[in-house]
Design a protein around this nucleic acid. Structure first.
Length: 478
RNA sequence: GGCGCCAUCGUCUAGUCCGGCUCAGGAUACCUGGUUCUCAGCCAGGAGACCCGGGUUCAAAUCCCGGUGGCGCUACCA
């Protein structure tokens, strides 16, 4: 029975790197009919950020990665870790260390100065029972450290990387229990993974260096270690280092705010380091469950390519039907303050087909269709220059207004017939008036098809805006 | 610095395990053309990669060694 866990620490929002780790764990669990557990590793009170647990859970839910157990909080299991730390003490696999932080810091400084590798000098490792007793009675705070074998080497089999070996000489007696009684990540992590029956530990690459410590701990406890799977990290677009805030959005919920669809984000993230094989790119969550195979996960870090995410998002938007899109997009219009009554909601409904092929995000909808809601849009400079510099154009537009005023039907088919008819009467190409009309109506040179756009805008607005453009730009020397 | 991990188009990747089918396939981004009232979309085409050097072999992107580069870790943080 497969049991995996996603174990973030509540030090901030859930970023996309963490989300991908969660996704792989989730997919692996679902694929194997296993259990996906959420565990909050909050053993460092100083780094706790209020609200981050909520953010993490909401992010996971939004992405569709529901957990089967938890969330467990390590801060509520402190006694447990304490107990196990003391068990190691009794077994002689750990020891109390009374060295102050000041001494450790000074030690490190000196080591660095002398070109030695920094690390604890194991001063307290060989304290006699009497010395320990004396120090304890003096009330001196202490930590509990793991006794690393002085010789030999430690290795483990990583599912992706194969055998990884380090010399025990390179390892130091790391702290298991801090002087405030809280466990360090290492202790809590190992104890919980064992107690929770975790079969596969899938976490980011950066944990590889501390895995030997964990292996030594499992051995010290006499426990069977889980299978380790170290996932490659997500790199910043410049390829230098991990993705961070300064490269743009990193928080999952931030992507939601920008109008990305969870399906798109998940699909994109899944392909960052994993391939379903062949040429498949657009894969639903269900298909991913079926196809997910740890063997197909890559080893090298992958760059987060915003461009590709935008493309994928647009693909998913186009896959939605108009009704679904309406529900998704309405909140974005509301956020922009464009929705005041039912007529506005109806308007949004009509806009969906005009824009769904042109947007990359949900946020683009209100941004690109602002002029349907307000008259205070701006005219594109180039658009004015290109379309309103000749004098004849205003005569043409007047003719258009005339025709529009007498129009009985205002479907895009009839509008098209009418506009093309005007052009023919005038002996000009339709495009000669189409573009100026678009600028007059929207202020822009680009946008949905003019006739569809006019139909939705409505006869009154069309006439009004063309008249206004004539007034504004006629005789104006650009 | 030490230790570790990694290395196919700019980017995500297929192929690498079990060497020949590959003068390396797809996607994205970019460029060109077509469709069209513009844009987007769609269609067609283009340019673009096996880090370097040795070795093994009839044959290497694929196996081995070395180098280089990138990244990670080096806390009473996770």
């Amino acid at each position: 029975m497969v049991r995996v866990r996603f174990a973030p620490s509540p030090t901030g929002y859930l970023h996309v790197g963490g989300a991908r780790t969660a996704l792989y764990n989730w997919l692996f669990a679902r694929h194997n009919n296993g259990t996906f557990i959420l565990r909050i590793e909050d053993t460092d009170r100083t780094r706790y950020v209020p609200g981050s647990v909520e953010d993490i859970m909401e992010s996971l839910k939004w992405l569709g990665l529901e957990w089967d157990e938890g969330p467990y909080f390590q801060s509520k299991r402190i006694e447990l870790y304490r107990k196990y730390a003391h068990e190691l003490l009794q077994r002689g696999m750990a020891y109390k260390c009374f060295c102050s932080e000041e001494r450790l810091q000074k030690l490190r400084e000196e080591q660095r100065k002398m070109g030695l590798k920094p690390g604890y000098d194991r001063k307290c490792r060989n304290l006699t029972p009497e010395e320990v007793k004396k120090l304890e009675e003096s009330g001196k705070p202490y930590v509990i450290r793991l006794k690393i074998p002085l010789e030999g080497e430690t290795s483990f089999d990583d599912y992706l990387h194969g055998k990884i070996t380090v010399k025990n000489k390179e390892l130091e007696d790391l702290i298991l229990l801090k002087s405030d009684g809280y466990p360090t990540y290492h202790l809590a992590n190992v104890v919980d993974d064992h107690l929770m029956g975790i079969t596969h530990v899938m976490r980011a690459d950066e944990w590889i260096p501390s895995t030997p410590y964990h292996v030594i701990m499992y051995k010290a406890f006499g426990w069977e270690p889980p299978i380790f799977v170290h996932l490659p990290v997500i790199l910043a677009p410049d390829g230098k280092g991990k993705l961070s805030k300064r490269h743009g959005a990193v928080s999952v919920l931030e992507f939601r705010k920008m109008g990305f669809l969870p399906e798109a984000l998940v699909n994109f993230l899944a392909l960052l380091g994993w391939s379903p094989g062949g040429d498949r790119e657009i894969v639903s969550l269900n298909e991913m469950i079926e196809l997910f195979d740890l063997k197909k996960v890559g080893k090298r870090g992958s760059v987060f390519d915003f461009n590709k995410l935008y493309w994928m998002n647009s693909v998913y938007i186009r896959m939605k039907n108009d009704e679904e899109l309406y529900n998704l997009v309405l909140p974005f219009y509301e956020r922009e303050g464009l929705i005041e009554d039912k007529s506005h909601r109806d308007l949004v409904k009509k806009l969906i087909p005009l824009y769904k092929e042109r947007v990359k995000t949900l946020e683009d909808f209100p941004k690109m269709s602002y002029y349907f809601f307000r008259d205070d849009f701006e005219y594109d400079e180039e658009g004015i220059k290109k379309n309103f510099s000749s004098t004849e154009i205003f005569n043409y537009l007047e003719k258009v207004v005339e025709k529009l005023e007498s129009a009985e039907s205002f479907t895009h088919e009839d509008i098209e017939k009418m506009i093309r008819g005007v052009a023919e009467e005038l002996g000009i190409k339709a495009r000669v008036i189409i573009h100026p009309i678009r600028v007059a109506l929207t202020g822009k040179t680009v946008g949905p098809g003019l006739f569809e756009l006019m139909e939705v805008l409505g006869k009154e607005k069309c006439i009004e805006r063309i008249k206004k453009a004539i007034e504004t730009f006629r005789g104006q020397k650009p």
